[in-house]
């Protein structure tokens, strides 16, 4: 249904047939028609199961980092949103670019099946695409839906897909009073089940042992003993990712509880851009980051007091 779908599969075939890579990291088709899992393909023959369509939301960069011990080159398919995290993982030496055959692929936005369900669509049998509409054949009749209404959150701020401003929602949040914001997050994070899906799918989270798993860290809480624990977990994660988060949107996509984690990350990105200026690609390649390099032009730390004083 993607125009590029066949082309991507053909590219994958050529890579494996020609031996440009030992294996290819892509997606494997599921009989549901939408629940495709990331998969490693080792030969062109295995590509019968290959799929690239509207339901390949997962970012393969993180899985690629886990394959770094594998012998020989690995080919990986990168959507626009995944490329930044790939670059970050290369910069942080989690991926050896020499061992990777990188294939940039087109994407016109990925569908969020939860959003379809929230529209009351149940019992999905098949989803086809026609123009900008999805035709959903269900156990309870035929349904239609404009595809742009059910895209993943991350697609809504992707320049290739949407013209929306990624920071609009952050701006709206900033308009609220600190008490309102506190209540918002208290409610949103109260549903956190500490399953670690956000952390484990995050391309930035590649520590050998996370402090939240280390019994000697004193912070290895597996569940919330109180609300502070969940706040602590998410805020530490956001600050650990500050200046490194590429807004790939995986945390929000995978959260089983639908917590809008992207708001936290984008707030930090917005602040960094405002306070330190957007980093040039050159700076990034030099390993510079808002919190890892210093200049006298940087914002003075009292910005915190000034800001909180405003409210």
């Amino acid at each position: 249904m993607h125009n590029s779908s066949c082309t991507v599969k053909e590219t994958a075939r050529k890579i494996l047939e020609s031996g440009q890579a030992e294996r290819l990291l892509g997606w494997e088709q599921d009989s549901s028609g939408y629940n495709h899992a990331p998969a490693v393909f080792k030969s062109a023959g295995e590509l019968d199961r290959f799929i690239y369509d509207r339901f390949c939301g997962s970012n393969l960069s993180k899985l690629l980092a886990r394959l770094r011990e594998a012998e020989g080159r690995t080919a990986v398919l990168l959507k626009a949103c995944d490329r930044e995290s790939f670059n970050l993982l290369v910069r942080e030496h989690r991926i050896d670019p020499e061992q990777v055959h990188r294939v940039d692929i087109e994407c016109s936005g990925m569908v969020d099946i939860e959003k379809l369900r929230n529209k009351g669509i149940k019992g999905i049998r098949e989803i086809t695409e026609s123009g900008d509409e999805l035709h959903i054949s269900t156990l309870y009749g035929e349904k239609r839906c404009r595809s742009e209404e059910v895209l993943l959150e991350k697609c809504l701020s992707c320049p290739a897909v949407s013209s929306a401003d990624a920071f609009d929602a952050v701006g709206q949040m900033e308009e609220r009073s600190s008490l309102e914001r506190y209540e918002f997050w208290k409610e949103a994070l109260s549903t956190c089940i500490r399953c670690n899906a956000c952390r484990n799918s995050c391309p930035v989270c590649t520590c050998e042992q996370c402090i939240f798993d280390n019994p000697r860290s004193g912070t290895a809480g597996k569940a919330s003993a109180d609300f502070f624990e969940d706040q602590h977990f998410h805020l530490v994660r956001v600050f650990h990712a500050a200046g490194r988060c590429t807004d790939c949107g995986e945390c929000t996509r995978v959260c089983p509880q639908g917590i809008p984690l992207y708001l936290l990350n984008r707030k930090v990105i917005k602040d960094i851009n405002e306070l330190y200026g957007e980093l040039s690609l050159e700076d990034k390649e030099l390993g510079k980051g808002a919190l890892t390099s210093f200049s006298f032009q940087d914002a003075h730390p009292d910005i915190i007091r000034k800001r909180t004083g405003d409210q």
Partner: peptide, 28 residues
């Protein structure tokens, strides 16, 4: 081996599962 390839080792499946019973004991 193949089945577990996509698994990122999070606990989502176990926590949303109605029959998963495993627990830890912790001190706070």
């Amino acid at each position: 081996q193949k089945l577990s390839e996509p698994c990122i080792g999070c606990g989502t499946c176990t926590f949303v599962c109605p029959t998963c019973q495993c627990f830890d004991i912790r001190d706070f």
